[in-house]
Amino acid sequence: MSVFQLLNGMTFAALLFIVASGFTLIFGLLRIVNLAHGALYLLGGYIGLAVAQATGIYLLSGLAAMGGIALAGLVLDQTLLRWVKGYELRQVLLTLGVALVINDLTLVIWGGDTFSVPVPPELQGAASILGVTYPKFRLFVLAVGVATFLALWLMLNKTRLGALIRAGVDDAEMVEASGINIQRVFLLTFMLGAALAGLGGWLGGAFLTLYPSADSEILVFSMAVVIIGGRGSLVGAAVGSVLIGMLNTFGQVWFPELAYFVIFGPMAVLLAFRPLGLFGRAA
């Protein structure tokens, strides 16, 4: 295992974590499997691309991607999902319909070509780390991934909102009964999860590039992460991301054409022993 491949695995894991943490937050608290998460990622990437092209300010494009997708999450939750509250399968299938619509919309607007979100000069080129020369941008993604983990961990464990979310994951009814407006917590969590998809799309837009089927690809990776890590678990998402990131990197080196097998084989074995994932708890 060379340092180079280790870094490849870790940087990909960081991107996966950003996307999957949003997915698992929504899944854990709202019990919604948001199949539009991949489409939101793609849309976030394209928004980032458009803003970066229009203004040339990199940081602004990131904020626009996050804000835009959080807004999309707000609209999705308030206009569509609220009508099917409490019906798990109808919610999931509804988000699937939304995913199809968003994916096709991006195809209409941006076409089928491959795009890459422009990166500022400071993040271009390579840096020397651990004795190898490595692309700076990927290290930046790794740093953002770690920062996201820390921020989410602090938010969940040290703030009032985090306490409410944790309590809601365990027993939403009880939280509501103690006089908390859980619906507002739900909405905030949904927007936060969506914003993370937008952030992922913005970073992924330069890391993996943007193209029409990128949304299903990132969605399947995020689902694998959440299936391995367990519903609603932040640590689970981190462990799952590292596992999947590493397996994907080494799978592509050793069995390039069957890389998917290398990822999902271990996932399947794990499920046979722990159907709810490593850190999952029964609902």
Binding site: L80, L93, V101
Partner: peptide
């Protein structure tokens, strides 16, 4: 694909 998605949403 978009129409399919919309049909899905409406049915749900």
């Amino acid at each position: 694909q978009m129409v399919l998605g919309i049909v899905f949403i409406l049915i749900m």
